[in-house]
Write a protein that binds this DNA or RNA. Structure first.
Lengths: 398, 398
DNA sequence: CCCGCTTGCTTGTAGCTGTCAACAAAACAG
DNA sequence: CTGTTTTGTTGACAGCTACAAGCAAGCGGG
């Protein structure tokens, strides 16, 4: 059944129908390129003539192009279509706790240019640095860029796109999107990093994920964020921002305090910081004696160091406990784990699935728990997706 | 933005637009009756003529009727419309752990007839009893009944409407809906009780809830169930059934074991059984010495007995802990508590909100936590809603 | 009492959209 | 080279909403 927003009076007009079908056709091209008009007509059960008209519109709008004839299957050979990926259209900014990455991509999500710098705790400095780089990129690409997406490790108000709270930097109520728009003269979309990564999986992940209409992204970083996808859309909630399951209470006596001081949160049991704290304790290292970052810890574990392995596996166990809560409550088709911890996936996958199975005390089939399919930079892809997905989700040629 | 299911190729046809608008008009009548064509046109921004045509269809279909002229506001007086609630159209079955309630209602959700009997643990006996009563009701109402809705305290497969597992009776994989359909020759919809109650709040609750597009129903009974409403639709998940947040791990050492043996679940901390167990312990009553049910416990508390109050308030605290998890993760506009515990709402509301505030460790505005607006029989209303809501959600006159 | 004014509803035409049938284009098979 | 198959295009037709004009029914002032 089509999902309709009955409460807000957004009625259907004659052109609504074309808007809907245009999106469907565009997304067929995006996901199945190269594809012919005829094949789209077949699958959508719209008439060939209708598809032709819509493709004409999309071609005129510069979103789709023909790439010559395909193989004949006994008759006239089909004219194949693909997304026209001429040059950069989006800027993605991955504002991380340690480093900020800025990249441009074409409309298909391929990264074209990329640069990074150390994130400064001072908002003004980081902001100015980003604006400087965005302006430079915009100048170099002469107005081809259509928007900026920013993913950041904190709460973002879904209505305004402004940050409510970024724990690591202690930024409160910063009008990030608005100020960035004013400074760069480009549309800016900001979102929580886990939400952005979920969006990226949805639009640019491997087919096994893209075709999943309900999944949960669990992003393990310094903190622990979750992004929820319902019915093929990222759910953002109403107040503040949804997806802070990282702060759900799952027990007591965690190895560290979460970003807001609690020892009961999932984050304080299963984040990168929790894993590092476990390792320090196991290795008998006093606080502050040795700075070890999580990537190094993963490296140690992969090389076989027992303490590192134990710390990771214990963290994985609690990751599984939290995941089981999400599965019980939301019954998604899949749970996707992302972040540096994925590098050690073979070491931890069993501990996670075991904890999940143990804690799903009902006769429910456990959802698949899989590693991210986005490669090394899920949050950067997320930032780019914020721009690209909105393009594919609402094509308006008039 | 309109929510569109892009992945499944359900394209828009010329009549799709009328289907959408017909639903919108019908729901305007339902929610705002008595209302005139003109007012609907004003609010939906559809043209008056369009509304007239749609209303004609709905009248012909017997869903809407005119009830004479209203007050003039300076010109021709409006013709007022309302939902035509002639007779019974739905049967609702509230299959509870102790008692089963069967009722008929008109299209507006007003209960017309109601009867109940003790639920038998044996599936066959309960099933036969229900079928017997449904047949009798169907016969008495001569084919006016359009469907049967069943709410039950267990997991229901959203695809088939068959029960996966009902803990209290240990019913596994029962083809309830299918068998009932075969036996009664009526369409049967079955759902989890908390989901059903959420649906009832959404369609027939007080306006403050109906207009809320994202809320969570927390149904406190023998067990503890949750129903999740996203964007005005009950979310059911993919595998098994969503909404089993009652089994999320929130700590350890609960007063009782949950339905599946765990002492860590929210249910084992905050269900009716947990409250009763707490009371027994406080009152120094050994297991089995005195059978006290939860309604009696609430009565004692209302009469001022300290042990009963303490037991309830402690339960309320853990209710709040779980609710805070849901708010952090899903950021709903409201959380609605339902079940017998609502009778003691003034006694417990502070403990709940306090626990919520304590555990939302972020700077987020806490969602409203409110008591159900459905009165004494939320799950019966839920069962009826299963039939009625589907009627309002997809009117097809052709 | 009549007239203009306002508001509610209906009717007929125009513009947009998808369907359908007919047709042209391009390859294949015999 | 002809008949068949598949692909894509074109023009007539039906369904939908928008718009404008007209009818219906009450109000209020002279």
């Amino acid at each position: 059944m089509r999902r309709i927003n009955l409460k807000r009076a957004n009625v259907a007009r004659p052109n609504t129908i074309r808007d809907i079908n245009r999106q469907i056709v565009l997304n067929f091209v995006r996901e199945r390129e190269p594809i012919s008009r005829s094949e789209i007509a077949h699958e959508t059960e719209l008439h060939r003539s209708t598809i032709s008209l819509i493709v004409d519109e999309l071609k005129e709008y510069g979103l789709v192009e023909e790439i010559g004839a395909g193989e004949s299957t006994g008759g006239r050979p089909p004219t194949l279509l693909r997304i026209r990926a001429a040059g950069p259209v989006a800027i993605g900014i991955d504002l991380g706790t340690a480093r900020t990455i800025i990249a441009t991509s074409d409309i298909a999500g391929r990264v074209l240019e990329q640069e990074e710098f150390a994130t400064n705790t001072d908002f003004k400095k980081t902001f100015d640095h980003i604006v400087d780089r965005v302006r430079e990129l915009n100048k170099r690409n002469k107005g081809a860029l259509e928007g900026v997406g920013i993913s950041l490790p904190g709460l973002v108000d879904p209505a305004t796109g402004n940050t409510v709270y970024v724990p690591h930097f202690k930024w409160h109520d910063v009008a990030l999107a608005k100020e960035m728009e004013a400074a760069t003269n480009l549309p800016v979309t900001a979102d929580n990093d886990a939400n952005a990564a979920a969006l990226a999986e949805l639009w640019f992940g491997r087919p096994e994920v893209r075709e999943t209409r309900d999944f949960i992204m669990v992003l393990v970083e310094e903190g622990l964020g979750t992004g929820i996808v319902f019915d093929g859309q990222v759910y953002r909630g109403e107040l503040g921002s949804a997806g802070e399951f990282g702060h759900m209470t799952i027990g007591a006596g965690a190895p560290i305090a979460c970003a807001s001081g609690s020892y009961n949160c999932w984050e304080s049991f299963a984040s990168e910081r929790a894993a590092v704290a476990r390792y320090m304790k196991l290795a008998g290292i006093k606080n502050g004696h040795l700075k070890l970052n999580f990537v190094q810890l993963v490296q140690h574990a992969l090389e076989g160091e027992p303490n590192a392995r134990t710390a990771l596996r214990e963290t994985a166990h609690y990751l599984g406990v939290g995941i089981s809560n999400l599965i019980k409550g939301l019954s998604p088709q899949a749970v996707i784990v992302s972040g540096s911890i994925v590098r050690a996936w073979p070491l931890i996958v069993e501990d996670i699935t075991e904890a999940v199975a143990e804690n799903i005390c009902l006769g429910l089939p456990p959802a698949r728990v899989i590693a991210s399919t986005l490669g090394a930079q899920p949050t950067l892809m997320g930032a780019l997706s914020l721009v690209l997905a909105s393009k594919f989700a609402s094509v308006q040629t008039n």
